[in-house]
Simulated assay, not measured.
Amino acid sequence: MILAAGLGTRLLPLTKKIPKPLLPIIDKTLLQIAIETACKANPNIIVINASYLSGKITEFLGAHDFGVEIKVSVEPDILGTAGGIKAVEKWLSKDDFGVINSDIIATVDWDALKKIHKNSNATATLMLRDNPDPAIYGPLCLNEKGRVIRIVNTKNRDLSGAEPLLMFTGVSMLSPAIFERIPAGRAVEISSEIYSPMVKAGEPLYGYVTQAEWTDAGTMENYHKAVMARFATCKTSIGMTAKSLKYVTIRPPVHIDTGVYIRAGSTIGPNVAIHEGSVIGASVILKNCVVTPRSNVRSGAFLDGEVI
Rank of each mutant, 00 (worst) to 15 (best):
residue 21 P to T: 05
residue 137 Y to A: 10
residue 263 R to D: 05
residue 51 S to I: 01
residue 235 K to Q: 00
residue 262 I to G: 02
residue 159 L to C: 11
residue 27 D to G: 06
residue 50 A to G: 11
residue 219 T to I: 11
residue 272 V to W: 15
residue 138 G to L: 03
residue 117 H to G: 02
residue 207 G to L: 14
residue 206 Y to L: 12
residue 6 G to I: 12
residue 274 I to P: 07
residue 268 I to R: 11
residue 286 L to E: 06
residue 147 R to G: 03
residue 204 P to Y: 15
residue 56 K to M: 08
residue 49 N to A: 08
residue 51 S to Q: 04
residue 12 L to R: 13
residue 51 S to R: 11
residue 211 Q to I: 08
residue 257 D to Y: 00
residue 292 T to F: 04
residue 40 K to D: 10
residue 82 A to W: 03
residue 162 A to Y: 02
residue 63 A to L: 13
residue 188 V to M: 07
residue 105 I to T: 04
residue 281 G to C: 07
residue 300 G to H: 04
residue 281 G to Y: 15
residue 61 L to T: 05
residue 18 I to D: 03
residue 210 T to K: 13
residue 112 A to S: 09
residue 288 N to S: 01
residue 194 I to G: 12
residue 263 R to T: 08
residue 157 R to Q: 15
residue 99 V to W: 08
residue 93 S to R: 00
residue 213 E to F: 10
residue 294 R to P: 01
residue 52 Y to N: 02
residue 174 L to I: 01
residue 270 P to W: 15
residue 265 G to M: 00
residue 129 R to C: 13
residue 120 S to M: 08
residue 280 I to G: 02
residue 26 I to S: 01
residue 54 S to T: 13
residue 167 M to Q: 15
residue 6 G to Q: 12
residue 185 G to T: 11
residue 184 A to F: 05
residue 137 Y to Q: 04
residue 117 H to S: 08
residue 61 L to V: 08
residue 307 V to K: 10
residue 174 L to K: 07
residue 103 D to E: 14
residue 278 S to P: 06
residue 116 I to L: 11
residue 219 T to K: 00
residue 67 G to I: 06
residue 240 M to F: 04
residue 104 I to F: 02
residue 58 T to W: 05
residue 260 V to M: 00
residue 220 M to K: 04
residue 202 G to V: 03
residue 162 A to F: 05
residue 110 W to D: 09
residue 208 Y to C: 15
residue 304 D to P: 06
residue 103 D to A: 12
residue 177 A to K: 03
residue 225 K to E: 04
residue 292 T to Y: 01
residue 73 S to A: 12
residue 22 L to F: 01
residue 229 A to P: 10
residue 88 V to A: 09
residue 135 A to G: 13
residue 232 A to D: 13
residue 198 M to W: 07
residue 20 K to I: 14
residue 121 N to V: 05
residue 154 T to I: 12
residue 133 D to A: 07
residue 302 F to M: 02
residue 41 A to V: 09
residue 128 L to N: 13
residue 236 T to M: 03
residue 11 L to S: 06
residue 211 Q to H: 08
residue 221 E to W: 07
residue 290 V to P: 00
residue 227 V to R: 00
residue 49 N to G: 09
residue 23 L to R: 14
residue 147 R to V: 03
residue 11 L to V: 15
residue 102 S to C: 14
residue 45 I to G: 01
residue 15 T to I: 11
residue 269 G to K: 15
residue 124 A to N: 05
residue 128 L to Y: 10
residue 4 A to N: 07
residue 18 I to C: 05
residue 213 E to C: 08
residue 58 T to L: 06
residue 4 A to S: 13
residue 19 P to T: 11
residue 126 L to W: 07
residue 79 L to V: 10
residue 111 D to Y: 09
residue 114 K to W: 12
residue 159 L to T: 13
residue 85 I to Q: 05
residue 189 E to F: 12
residue 125 T to D: 06
residue 28 K to Q: 14
residue 64 H to I: 11
residue 78 I to P: 01
residue 127 M to T: 04
residue 44 N to R: 14
residue 254 V to P: 04
